[in-house]
Simulated scan of single mutants.
Amino acid sequence: MQSMAFYLLLLLSLTSTTTSATTIGVTYSTPASISGSALLSPDRIAAKVVSMNIPAVRLLDSNPAMIRAFAYTNVSLFLSVPNPLVPLLASNRSLAMRWVYRHVLPFHPRTKISIISVGNDAISYSPDVSPFLLRAMQNIHLSLADLRIYKVSVSTTFSFFNIVPTAFPPSSAQFQNPNGDVIIRPILQFLERTNSSFLINLFPYNMYRSSFSIPIGFALFEEFPFNFRDDLTTGVRYRNLFDMMVDAVISSMAVMGHENLPVIVAETGWPSSGIDASEVDATLLYSEMYLKGLLNHLRSGTGTPLRKEGVSEVYIFELVEKEAKQGIRNWGILHHNMTDKYSFEFSDGGETRRFVEVLLGFSVEVVMVLYLLM
């Protein structure tokens, strides 16, 4: 019976590992139209997300009609406050309450709202907004608490390139000052107190383009014998650029005493076309290779060298590509007319988890039968 008990514990452990893998979602912002004609209705977007078994969506514009469309779908929503609103919400608590009344209260809990990002990469796009981030976050958090909404966390989103100047070696990474001490440190303290997560936009494509020393296979999760980089300080070996960048963020948080904060990758992806002909690596093939490699890596549950549980959530940028125009990159996993762009399945639909659950149930029955026969 001891061997049977061990076998059962092993299966329980396998089930736990499978169900704790990173949540993989997508970002979505409302495009103007499909081919200049019919609008993409919120109901159509929600139905497509559900049909693709996507468990989470980041709404970059937090359109109330779109929030309503996801009611009763079991899809978790990540809402965003636009950068221009941040100073207003910071200076006026009643405006923060009004935003919550408009974007959260009418829908929660029928729509699963999990987190609100107050601002998106404000340090880069709206540097004058950055000093207002923490106060705006506090006002949104207090407004939620006043309405007894306790399961929606509040954070803000940073961009890797604007806060981490050097990603290698990851063990030596630190947040860039003065923003590190002035902006990020107090925000980390707020996240720790409120049990929230650190949100980061993380694009290996941009780092690959900025450094000739990074091989394309290292950025695309290709497994070659010599496709790695060693952190000589820690002895850790990195086999893909995504893990290296995530660990650089974790090391930067550790320097400030917050190494255990959950990390959510709010945006990542690889463009299928570039701004101009010079972006020779922005191709449909490489985009598919990156997404396939990323999804397989996240589903494996192996995490990163510095964080075995990995990041808690990752959002692919983006669900629907914009109308093809000169001078913009295309990132979408769907064409602008909502047809599939890639041949792979975005989600396994829980097939692995269900297989393990069925296997576990069968094994329990076998153990019980054998026990009764002894």
Rank of each mutant, 00 (worst) to 15 (best):
V320L: 05
E351G: 00
S272Y: 05
T352A: 15
E267S: 09
P106G: 10
Y315C: 11
F161Y: 08
D121C: 06
F107A: 08
L11Q: 14
E345M: 01
M374S: 13
F107C: 06
M207N: 07
I200C: 08
M4C: 13
P31A: 08
P64A: 07
S62Q: 00
L319Y: 03
L144N: 03
P55S: 05
D340V: 05
I275C: 14
L373E: 07
S117V: 05
G119M: 04
E192N: 15
S80N: 12
N83Q: 04
A173S: 14
I333L: 02
P215A: 07
A282L: 04
G361P: 01
G349L: 08
F107S: 07
L334D: 07
V154N: 04
G361K: 00
S94N: 09
S124N: 08
I333P: 02
A173T: 03
L147E: 10
L295Y: 07
M289L: 10
T23C: 06
L261A: 01
V236D: 13
V311A: 11
S347N: 00
L12I: 13
V320P: 03
G217I: 06
V49G: 00
P31G: 04
L298V: 08
G217L: 09
V255Q: 09
V314I: 07
T234N: 00
E223Q: 10
A122E: 12
L294N: 09
A46T: 12
F212Y: 08
T302D: 11
F78E: 09
N296K: 09
M52W: 03
L89Y: 01
L14A: 15
G350W: 00
Y286V: 11
I149N: 03
M338I: 03
N195T: 11
S196R: 11
P127C: 11
S213Y: 05
V255E: 09
H258G: 05
F221Q: 03
S196P: 10
L95Y: 04
P165R: 02
R209F: 02
R185H: 13
Y286C: 14
E309H: 10
T194L: 08
I275S: 15
L373Q: 04
A47L: 04
A65F: 06
L40H: 09
G350C: 01
M368F: 13
R44W: 10
D281C: 12
Q174V: 13
L95P: 00
L88D: 06
L39N: 14
G310E: 06
P271W: 07
M1G: 14
Y371N: 14
D230Y: 10
G25F: 09
E351S: 02
S94C: 05
G119V: 05
L319G: 03
L77H: 06
Q138I: 05
R185V: 13
A5S: 08
I316F: 09
I216T: 12
S37W: 01
N162H: 15
F175H: 10
L306C: 04
F226Q: 15
H335F: 15
Y101E: 15
H297D: 14
G25T: 06
S347K: 00
N337I: 13
S62L: 00
A145N: 06
H258Q: 11
R148F: 13
P225H: 03
K112D: 15
I123T: 08
F221V: 11
I316H: 04
N83K: 05
L372W: 12
L360H: 04
L144W: 00
A21V: 15
P271H: 07
S197A: 15
S114Q: 09
T156Y: 10
S130R: 07
